[in-house]
């Protein structure tokens, strides 16, 4: 693959911009931690175009950079837990080839939320946090569905671009 580093840079920039755009959209689901996850759009596209290794690297770089720029060290911890679990699940399901891009994205959205919830439980050492599980599951399905449909559309249109 030619220009691998250049493409990686472009994707990183795109993911960071989407992280920023997300901050500008005041969508509040009424539950802490639930958000659209626009940056996952880039992660899903890279997972399908370039494989899980590059998607993993992009995910970690994105979370650390966006974390330092827009939030704090604390949210980086949550995002990393969610991001790594989500990418692990998505890579596995993609490899198993049972679901289409949308199904993989739904599983990714849900596991992202579950990962963050697990860290939250460990931090506050209280099972009460588990109360949010149903709401976060539903939010994960909806955002995963949206991101999945968008990713499928993007992948269909960029397949002629090599790289």
């Amino acid at each position: 693959m030619k220009n691998r580093a250049a493409y990686f840079g472009v994707f990183t920039a795109l993911a960071l911009i989407l992280s920023y755009v997300e901050l500008l959209i005041p969508i509040n689901f009424g539950i802490p931690g639930a958000k659209l996850g626009l940056a996952n759009l880039v992660i899903v596209v890279v997972l399908y175009r370039n494989g899980w290794k590059e998607a993993f690297l992009l995910s970690v770089v994105r979370i650390v950079l966006a974390g330092f720029m827009f939030t704090n060290l604390f949210s980086i911890l949550y995002s990393l837990a969610g991001g790594i679990l989500s990418l692990g699940v998505m890579s596995l399901l993609k490899w198993k080839n049972i679901f289409s891009v949308t199904g993989v994205s739904i599983a990714g959205g849900v596991s992202h939320n579950v990962g963050q919830l697990l860290v939250a439980m460990a931090v506050v050492e209280t099972y009460q946090v588990g109360w949010y599980l149903p709401a976060l599951l539903i939010a994960g399905v909806l955002t995963g569905l949206l991101i999945g449909i968008l990713s499928a559309g993007i992948l269909k249109r960029i397949r002629f671009i090599d790289g």
Binding site: S100, T102, V141, I149
Partner: peptide, 14 residues
């Protein structure tokens, strides 16, 4: 979307 995608979404929602 495949049929299995809908099953996944439906299953989690249930």
């Amino acid at each position: 979307m495949k049929k299995s995608d809908w099953f996944l979404a439906g299953g989690i929602l249930i």
